[in-house]
Design a protein around this nucleic acid. Sequence first.
DNA 1: GCGAAAATAT
DNA 2: TATATTTTCG
Length: 299
Amino acid sequence: MREDDSNWFSKWEEELPSPEELMPLSQTLITADLAIAFDIRYPNSPQTPHHHQQPPPPPPPPHLQTPSTQPTTNNSSEFDSAEMGGAGSGDEPARTLKRPRLVWTPQLHKRFVDAVAHLGIKNAVPKTIMQLMSVDGLTRENVASHLQKYRLYLKRMQGLSSGGGGSGGGLSSASDPATDHLFASSPVPAHFLHPGRPNSDHFLPFVPVAALQQQHHQQQMAAVAGHPQFQPQYRQMGHFGSPPNGQFEHPFLARQSQQPVHRVGTPVHNPMPSYIEDLESATAASGRKVLTLFPTGDD
DNA sequence: GCGAAAATAT
DNA sequence: TATATTTTCG
């Protein structure tokens, strides 16, 4: 079991989205103007057949919440510069803006579950979970509300699996596809369901120091427009054992196609994805625009 | 700061 | 309409 401890983090690390995954997000932070100014050009994804071209200039200014209506007219709205005169600085938006709706993607949720599992249901409270998750941009409120839902989900599961046994890998049909899509995407630690059964599990060795220490620095959240959903960037805590001054900040590199799930009458074969653990979803073809977060002063 | 409920957006 | 996420209240 000790080995497990040492391994869990490694495994965890591996699960973390590769830089590539995060890249696209960073790109969005750069506005066209800015990019031009800096002579930066993103190797944007291959031209999608026929779709609305990627939004022109993703509004850099941390504003957000694009009205998700009308994907066709990607005209962004008129938010942006000009609007907050009282901000004092004027150009740099204060961190007083409202954050965009957080989208709990399977990955995020997985992290959440992991954190909760590692903490043990007992210590799994919003603040702690949030810290353990080390997800930039995630707020305690976000976690709290998700936790609320998650608990509800667990409760439901208990009820359904209580009488019968669902032992043996046979996942009972406790989860409604429509009800808990997200939750179903990540395995629920068995112990969660048995509070009254101190099995071998909770004893969380230690938590990454990096995760606990308050790093009030510049954290940025990225936003994606189009189908991508809001994906908070995991804080850079990869190696806490690394040199104290090991500050590798790779701004933005190149990243290309992620995996646009174009399921729009495209001649793509659906090999019956047995189980996608990356993204799924797409909430609706309406085209949810996404959100962007920005430096939160505190956390 | 936590948890639950209400409110709101999608 | 139902669901997801946020905001408010105890």
